[in-house]
Design a protein around this nucleic acid. Structure first.
Lengths: 108, 108
DNA sequence: CTTGACGCTACGTAAATTGTAGCACAATAA
DNA sequence: TTATTGTGCTACAATTTACGTAGCGTCAAG
């Protein structure tokens, strides 16, 4: 399904890590799932579903498979949670919230 | 096509800016185009195409339409370029390169 | 005028995503 | 035992998105 760093993908023949990452994060709901997990940790499948606008279970499961394979998310006994690496990635994304607010003001 | 902050989308009924952003960045080639433009500024349509693994012109054009509508990219007399806001967003994404390298080492 | 580069579109095909229904399993309560 | 509830998740048909190829219209240079 999803490709790991080093593996050639349609969006990155080189397999260069950042390209593989950008492709993985560019799939629908990927960024959103990471975002929601960073604020709701851990989280059941159905909780995640409702946090993500009632996304279809098929899509959510596909995305979760990807993120688990990439070592960003894991399924624990208490539900889905970010791994340490997933957490470090979500930390990098945190500034997007403030940025988006400024952006929205500017666009308005 | 793409939605702007404040507008309800399938991925964000609220229209909350960060959600709209995450949805926009979650479309294929969106992150990659921003990434390539941050290193190649400005850039012709065909240059962008080859930087993005020969993405189809249909897809590239759709994504560029989105990004222009969101005020992140503009078409200047010298080619496609990030706007000031687009640049400030790409600056937030820069750390992803280093992060992805560490991540790849850890996954290996 | 022809050649080349530009941004971009048309069109048919392939792939991803969706919505709905519901399965298999485990824990809880009657 | 039986029923109920909650869990993660799958099947399937339909819609939406992305794709690959060909090529258009424009413009500047030769």
């Amino acid at each position: 399904m999803v490709k790991r760093p080093g593996q050639a993908t349609k969006s990155s023949a080189s397999g260069r890590p950042v390209m593989v990452l950008l492709e993985a994060l560019g799939k629908r709901w990927a960024l959103r799932v990471i975002w929601e997990l960073s604020n709701n940790n851990p989280c059941t499948f159905r909780e995640l579903q409702s946090l993500c606008e009632e996304v279809s279970p098929t899509s959510l499961n596909n995305r979760l498979k990807d993120l688990r394979q990439l070592g960003l998310v894991e399924l624990t006994s208490h539900g889905y949670a970010l791994t340490n690496y997933g957490r470090s990635l979500s930390d990098l994304l945190l500034p997007l919230d403030r940025w988006a607010n400024d952006w929205a003001d500017w666009l308005a």
